[in-house]
Simulated scan of single mutants.
Amino acid sequence: MTDNAADPGEPGTVEGLAGTTALVTGASRGFGRAIATALSGVGAHVVGVARDQARLHDLRDELGDTFAPVVAEATDPDVAARLIGEHRPLTLVLNAGATPLLRPLHHQTWETFSRNWEVDVQHVFHWVREALLHPLLPGSTVIAVSSGAAINGSPLSGGYAGAKATIRFMTSYAAAESKREGLGITFASVLPKLTPATQLGASGVAAYAERQGIDLDSFLTSFGPALTPEQVGTAIVDLAAGRHLHQDAYLLSPAGLAPLG
């Protein structure tokens, strides 16, 4: 277990994060990989959890000793309890999630429709529960990655938008419990805008372009600047470092983080 005492004097580090432990679920690809890289880049020791051993070890080769790969199922409550107990992270980023089946509602089955509830919601539930039951240290931060679909909906993604909205609600509930019990743990959700810069986002953008009957380039032009994984990583670091006024939820676009009421 890494000592969570910070040493803000090291070059290239962020005050409050250098020398501490961060734990990121879904760390093997997409936003999770970028978040793990960003936290490592400011001096945190990062524990990355995912099922893809090859991708995790590739990230370990890239980041070196600042990254510890853990091949595990993030939806398993025993995994959440064990890793929180072992590592006591100062920063916990809940990013793991399933790729939704991109079909209209009436072409979904209940199994495909509920996939993001079984993965995304269940995983956030178990980790947030453990963070409160066996409380993280005062001053710790728990950030759950939701989606802009939680606000605008996502008619080609089954239960995805509802699942992401529930993640936002659960994080808000946890923030209230932390305050009520005087735990000193900050909970927040981040809702990134749809972007073609990840595998999941690229599939979604292509599906919505087809739904609107326009070519992908035209859709992307109308869509505006694309949010990059690197921007997501930077935003998570900023939140973990306390660079924003505390809010329970933030919308994330290429322009940065915007608090949601």
Results as ranks from 00 to 15, higher is better:
Val142Glu: 03
Gly162Ser: 14
Thr186Gly: 07
Ile167Trp: 08
Thr171Asp: 03
His123Asp: 07
Ser218Gln: 12
Ser140Gly: 11
Arg115Lys: 09
Ser222Gln: 15
Ser189Asn: 04
His106Lys: 11
Ala197Val: 08
Leu137Cys: 04
Glu118Tyr: 10
Ser172Trp: 08
Thr99Pro: 05
Ala150Gln: 05
Gly224Glu: 05
Glu118Asn: 11
Gly213Phe: 13
Gly159Asp: 03
Ala161Cys: 14
Glu181Val: 11
Ala202Thr: 08
Ala188Tyr: 01
Ser147Ile: 10
Asn152Pro: 00
Val145Phe: 03
Tyr208Ile: 13
Thr186Phe: 10
Val145Glu: 01
Gly159Lys: 01
Pro100His: 04
Ala197Leu: 00
Arg115Leu: 13
Arg103Glu: 13
Arg103Ser: 15
Leu137Ile: 06
Val124Thr: 09
Ser154Lys: 03
Trp127Glu: 04
Thr99Lys: 13
Ala175Val: 09
Ser178Phe: 02
Leu216Tyr: 08
Trp127Arg: 05
Gly139Pro: 04
Ala209Ile: 12
Ala176Tyr: 07
Thr141Glu: 04
Glu130Ile: 02
Phe113Cys: 03
Tyr208His: 11
Gln212Ile: 10
Asp120Trp: 09
Leu183Gln: 01
Ser222Leu: 14
Phe219Gly: 02
Ser178Gln: 06
Thr166Gln: 09
Leu101His: 06
Ser146Trp: 10
Thr186Pro: 03
Lys179Asp: 14
Gly224Gln: 11
Gly158Gln: 00
Val121Cys: 02
Ala163Leu: 07
Val124Trp: 05
Val121Pro: 00
Ala150Phe: 07
Phe125Arg: 09
Phe187Pro: 01
Ile185Met: 07
Asp217Val: 11
Ser172Gly: 15
Ser140Phe: 01
Pro138Leu: 04
Ser222Thr: 10
Tyr173Ser: 14
His134Lys: 12
Pro104Tyr: 12
Arg168Lys: 06
Leu101Phe: 13
Asn152Thr: 14
Arg180Trp: 08
His134Glu: 11
Glu181Thr: 14
Pro155Thr: 10
Thr198Gly: 08
Thr166Leu: 13
His134Cys: 11
Val121Leu: 06
His123Val: 05
Gly224Lys: 07
Leu183Ile: 15
Gln122Ser: 08
Ser172Leu: 09
Ser178Ala: 15
Ser218Leu: 12
Leu183Cys: 06
Gln122Arg: 14
Asn95Gln: 11
Ala98Asn: 14
Ile185Lys: 02
Leu133Gln: 14
Trp110Gln: 06
Ser172His: 12
Leu216Arg: 13
His123Glu: 08
Gly213Lys: 14
Gly148Gln: 01
Lys193Phe: 01
Ser222His: 14
Ala175Tyr: 00
Thr171Met: 09
His123Leu: 12
Gly158Ala: 08
Ala188Ser: 12
Tyr160Ile: 06
Ala209Val: 07
Ile167Phe: 10
Val119Trp: 09
Ala161Leu: 09
Lys179His: 11
Phe187Thr: 05
Thr109Glu: 07
Tyr160Thr: 05
Leu191Tyr: 12
Ile167Gln: 01
Ala144Ile: 02
Val190Ala: 01
Ala98Val: 12
Gly148Tyr: 00
Arg211Glu: 13
Gly204Ile: 04
Pro155Phe: 11
His107Gln: 15
Trp110Arg: 10
Gly182Gln: 08
Glu118Cys: 06
Ala226Pro: 11
Ala202Val: 03
Gly184Lys: 07
Thr109Leu: 06
Ser218Ala: 12
Glu130Asp: 09
Arg211Asn: 06
Arg115Phe: 06
Ser140Val: 05
Arg103Met: 07
Gly204Asp: 00
Gly162His: 08
Gly159Phe: 08
Ala96Trp: 02
Arg103Lys: 15
Gln212Asn: 15
Ser157Met: 12
